[in-house]
Design a protein around this nucleic acid. Structure first.
Length: 965
DNA sequence: ACCGCCGGGTGCC
DNA sequence: ACCGCCGGGTGCC
């Protein structure tokens, strides 16, 4: 008779269905994940052999070599020091033995160390097993932890634990021995190699993916070759049952080769991935094609054709004119739902049926009879709305209109278009039972700025006679009925609406979606943000992330994407940190390799310069960039020199005193004035140039506001030193440093009594933060419009514009400046010479912005030929392909900003060659700025190893160069 | 449960 | 016999 031999733990594989409670479990994991401390800078204090006990009481299973989680359990009734041991899915395996648990509890509770466990040898009985514990944390806590452990009789071994009888070379990398076979290959990567590796993480992911696939008939736009490849790849990712990376089947079990976890159940397949093509390659079109082409079981989405009522009925005006319901107010994303939205549109390139649901009211339908022309052109004509059309598609009020009005007939009609599958609402169903065929709807979440683009593209790329139910879930009037939403083909909403709904009996979270698509997915980055939680909590069979820039700063950002895709087990932050992030960022080849494998498995990325079969994906027209030197007139030159000498004196003094940082705002002010001189004297306006000592609080405040104004207006894209992002809700401290209000408020509240400025360590208080008064922005405009004068740069521009108009009056131009006041100045000569122009700057509401763009993009005879564009207006993604000439009036600090701006017209859809003219004033600060730009492009050191302070110091070096000091 | 620990039974070899 | 030793009962925290 066999002794009651212990069985290998995976034999004991529990019958408990890990997946029954999967939803809440994954929720719990994501919740815990968000709190996981950042592992990047941590060091290994040492390791310790410990014991896991109580195995027989729990169902969680572990394998030889598997990583386990260690979780404090202060509420344990038997021992408040309890530390429980879990496997990758969070099922409990046992406890750490009492005395050791007491010692660990101390360091864990004080967050002196993060302890990680690996069960290197499995167990040889049913009651307990050994575990290797690795203690990680900040360098400065190392001694405290070591001592605390010694005091309780546990000595941390720093030499790596010798495993009796094991042939692994022990290494100081935890879990390195899981890769038992790889010996001696533990040289670390240098910071530089690492950076290159990260930068290239998303490159070369093209390969020969899965061939090509034609889109369903209902897609009207023919796909380009690379788009067919993408479609094929996406369909394959949705339909094939391939295991996620690092999982393999071993006999009856599924085994993860990185964590050594195994389970009877197949790991949740990742049906989806990251489409990370460069902007302009047609991610939107490809996604639309996916929606129409790959419904359940690989079949196309069943759609109905519109009946032949589309007999052209005097279709002079196009589609979507909808009367605007009163009460729908203006811009702003509708976190609270300020304006707009909802409706269902029968999207088709020709006809747009506007259907509304709640309020019965008027609906206008219009047909377009022209045959579908090429997209760009068609769009243009379509966008030539007659004057009667009160509201345009891009106008978000359109959405409000959609929902604000409805006719019963329209509603019914729409209903008929719903190919009513078993469209029973399925809220109660367990997510992702792969065969849940009742899910119909694709949910698209995007930033507000591209919402209209999606609507546009659906309209543009779907066959005219196909009825596709697209519902815009936006605005206070949105239809929150789950039944309604889950009967749509597509529901589009914004990140803000999603997170506003979240936790507020959100219908979006109660629906089992067929597919969820995160557009510009990189915007979801901070795992603590409400938005991230809202996104992670969506239930869907298939998940996609679209992004042109998948890694913005670091590997860290990738976690959100991986978690969203539910890539087991990395959707729990701990496993991501242990297995991927920390090893990779600390230069372990294995870690990096795993990261690369992972990314490769789930990502498709092509760049503008990628090639298929030796041919570029897209052929953009040529782009020519030239610099036009501008000579200042004699009086301008004299004024400039005066200002320059004055500024040099000021800055030299700061340099000598070593107070450049403290007076940073003043320094910027000097540079600012010089740059303004180069453009036009009127830009200088009123400047309280005497920056003397402020006597009264009111004066101080005035000064600070002035400084803030200068910093903000300087176009230097100042970043907040706390979050290192662009400044959001700027405030200035009494020591004249600018931060985001939330950031500095956090600093003050954490440091309490003794809060100091992060930059100069002066004491700061919340009530001393000065904000920029809103009214001031307006009041400026009136000041300088008295009598207009020209400047050398204005002359140079006008010369070009007049010449171009002579050559070809259809040419459209972008005129770009960082100074909106300069744009004001330019309006006068443009009017004088009879140019028809529009203006796009940051002050425009979303609604106006869309109007302006549409007007400009239109090809009508009376459409504007010039757009005055403020450099930072609008985000990427702005489509201004109507323009073929770009005039950059003044150099930017950051050449990437200029590139981005140029790319707004030099992108897919551009039919003409593009000419870019940069105006640079000879012998001026502008020339030096250009030199610095070049230097910056050469230096690729920015991201790694450079701290906030040395970014600032490099800025000081820049200043020296600019002032020729 | 092939250990450790506890506590009762026991007591030269 | 206020010890040691033996062997049965027992067992996470």
């Amino acid at each position: 008779m066999f002794p009651p031999r212990w069985r290998f733990s995976w034999d004991r594989c529990t019958e408990v269905d890990l997946f029954t409670d999967r939803h809440t479990l994954s929720q719990a994991i994501s919740a815990a994940a968000a709190e996981e401390p950042d592992a990047d800078g941590s060091v290994l204090y040492g390791q310790l052999k410990g014991t896991v006990v109580g195995l027989k009481y729990y169902t969680g299973v572990v394998n030889k070599g598997e990583m386990v989680g260690l979780v404090r359990e202060p509420q344990n009734p038997y021992d408040s020091n309890a530390v429980k041991v879990t496997n990758i899915y969070g099922s409990q395996v046992g406890h750490i033995k009492r005395q050791l648990a007491a010692a660990m509890a101390y360091v864990m509770d004080k967050t002196l160390a993060k302890v990680e466990g690996v069960v290197y040898s499995g167990t040889n009985n049913a009651f307990s097993m050994p575990v290797i514990l690795s203690f990680w944390g900040k360098e400065e806590n190392k001694n405290a932890v070591t001592e605390a452990m010694v005091r309780r009789g546990f000595k941390l071994d720093t030499g790596g634990i010798k495993l009796a009888g094991a042939n692994q070379t022990s290494s100081n990398s935890p879990g390195a021995w899981t890769m038992a076979s790889k010996k001696g290959l533990t040289t670390r990567l240098t910071a530089n190699e690492l950076k290159n590796a990260f930068d290239n993480l998303f490159e070369g992911l093209m390969e020969s993916k899965d061939g090509e696939k034609e889109a369903a008939e209902s897609v009207s736009t023919p796909l380009l070759l690379h788009q067919k490849q993408a479609l094929s790849w996406m369909c394959a990712r949705e339909n094939k049952c391939a295991l996620p990376p690092f999982w393999e089947k071993r006999g009856e079990l599924y085994y993860n080769s990185l964590t050594c976890f195994s389970a009877k159940e197949i790991p949740e397949r990742v049906r989806g991935g990251i489409l990370a093509d460069d902007m302009g390659l047609g991610k939107t079109l490809t996604t639309i094609a996916l929606i129409l082409t790959n419904f359940q079981k690989g079949k196309p989405l069943p759609v109905e054709k519109c009946e032949e009522q589309s007999s052209p009925r005097k279709a002079s005006t196009k589609s979507q004119m909808v009367s605007k319901p009163e009460g729908s107010s203006s811009a702003g994303d509708g976190a609270g739902g300020s304006d707009t939205a909802a409706g269902s549109l029968c999207a088709d390139s020709a006809k747009m049926e506007v259907i509304c649901v709640d309020t019965p009211d008027v609906v206008e339908k219009a047909d377009k009879s022209e045959k579908s022309a090429g997209k760009g052109k068609m769009k243009a004509t379509k966008r030539k709305p007659s004057k009667e059309a009160p509201v345009l598609l891009e106008d978000l009020d359109f959405a409000a209109a959609l929902c604000g009005s409805s006719s019963d007939t329209a509603f019914k009609k729409k209903k008929t278009t719903v190919k009513a599958g078993p469209s029973q609402s399925v809220e109660s169903s367990i997510i992702e039972s792969a065969d849940d065929l009742s899910a119909r709807t694709t949910l698209i979440i995007c930033p507000l700025s591209v919402l209209s683009n999606w609507l546009d593209q659906f309209e543009q790329h779907v066959q005219a006679d196909v009825k596709l139910n697209v519902y815009l879930y936006y605005g206070s009037e949105r239809n929150r009925s789950k039944k309604f939403l889950s009967s749509q083909d597509v529901v589009i909403t914004t990140y803000n609406v999603l997170s506003a709904d979240f936790g507020n009996k959100s219908p979006l979270h109660g629906i089992s979606w067929l597919r969820v698509v995160l557009d510009e997915g990189h915007v979801v980055r901070n795992p603590n943000a409400q938005m991230s939680k809202a996104v992670l909590d969506l239930k869907a069979q298939r998940r996609w992330i679209l992004s042109g820039t998948p890694i913005q700063n670091s590997v860290k950002d990738l976690w959100m994407l991986v978690a969203f895709l539910r890539l087991k087990p990395f959707d729990a932050r701990e496993w991501w940190n242990r297995v991927i992030q920390r090893p990779a960022t600390q230069g372990e080849r294995e870690g990096l390799q795993n990261l690369q494998t992972l990314v490769k498995c789930i990502t498709l990325r092509r760049t503008k310069s990628s090639e298929v079969n030796g041919r570029p994906l897209v052929c953009l027209p040529e782009k020519t960039v030239c610099v036009e030197q501008v000579e200042l007139s004699q009086p301008e030159r004299e004024e400039y020199e005066l200002a320059r000498n004055e500024g040099r004196n000021t800055i030299s003094r700061y340099m000598a005193e070593g107070t450049v940082l403290r007076n940073y705002a003043d320094v910027l002010a000097v540079l600012m004035r010089l740059r303004q001189h180069c453009c036009h004297p009127d830009l200088l306006a009123k400047t309280s140039s005497d920056l003397g000592v402020a006597a009264t609080p009111a004066e101080l405040r005035e000064h600070l506001i002035e400084k803030l104004r200068l910093v903000l207006a300087s176009g230097s894209d100042e970043e907040c030193s706390v979050c290192l992002d662009s400044i959001h809700l700027p405030v200035i401290t009494h020591c004249a440093h600018v931060f985001c209000r939330p950031c500095i408020a956090k600093v003050i509240s954490t440091e309490e009594e003794t809060a100091r400025c992060p930059l100069c360590r002066t004491e700061i208080k919340t009530n001393e933060l000065v904000e920029f008064p809103q009214e001031e922005i307006e009041e400026e405009n009136s000041a300088n419009s008295v009598k207009w004068r020209t400047s050398s740069k204005v002359q140079a521009l006008m010369g070009n514009l007049l010449r171009l108009r002579c050559e070809d009056s259809s040419i459209k131009c972008l005129i770009v400046s960082q100074f909106t006041r300069f744009l004001n100045v330019l309006e006068t000569p443009l009017r004088e010479h009879g140019f028809s122009f529009v203006r796009l700057d940051g002050t425009l509401s979303q609604k106006k912005r869309a109007q302006v763009i549409q007007e400009f993009q239109s090809s009508g005879a009376d459409s504007p030929t010039i757009m005055l564009l403020s450099l930072k207006a609008g985000g990427v993604g702005l489509n201004l392909t109507a323009a073929s000439h770009v005039f950059l009036m003044d150099p930017a600090w950051n050449p990437a900003t200029e590139e981005q701006c140029i790319d707004r017209c030099h992108r897919l859809g551009q039919k003409r060659n593009v000419f870019v003219t940069k105006f640079i004033v000879k012998d001026s600060v502008e020339e030096n700025m250009v030199k610095i730009q070049r230097k910056k492009q050469d230096l690729v050191e920015k991201a790694f190893g450079s701290t906030n302070t040395n970014r600032k110091t490099s800025r000081i070096d820049d200043i020296k160069a600019l002032m020729e000091l």
